[in-house]
């Protein structure tokens, strides 16, 4: 079996295991915030694996990598701008 195929199979297995763990976490009786942080960490790890290995981002040039990843902080800024007032709702 060639090296690429081995890497792709290993990635698929890791993605499947992470999915099973995510489902397990969703049934855990831990704090809500802890659950959200864990689930989002797993989801972002899975997304990075798909982009890095299956979409071959690892082989792209620095410029293209920047173009691909710049929208991520833009999305975070978008989230903050929409929900910046939420922490204050429980204070008032």
């Amino acid at each position: 079996m060639d090296k690429n195929k081995q890497l792709y199979i290993r990635t698929a297995i890791i993605l499947a295991i992470l999915t099973v763990l995510e489902i397990g976490i969703s049934y855990l009786t831990i704090s809500r915030m802890g659950q959200i942080v864990l689930l989002m960490t797993f989801a972002i790890t899975k997304m990075m694996l798909v982009a890095w290995i299956y979409m071959h981002v690892q082989h792209e040039t620095k410029t293209l990598k920047w173009i691909i990843f710049i929208p991520i902080p833009a999305g975070i800024l978008f989230t903050i701008s929409l929900m910046y007032d939420i922490p204050f709702r429980w204070v008032v």
Partner: peptide
Amino acid sequence: DLVWILVFTIIYLI
């Protein structure tokens, strides 16, 4: 596939 990973987590699990 990548987007579904996020949709599944946010809509179904969180």
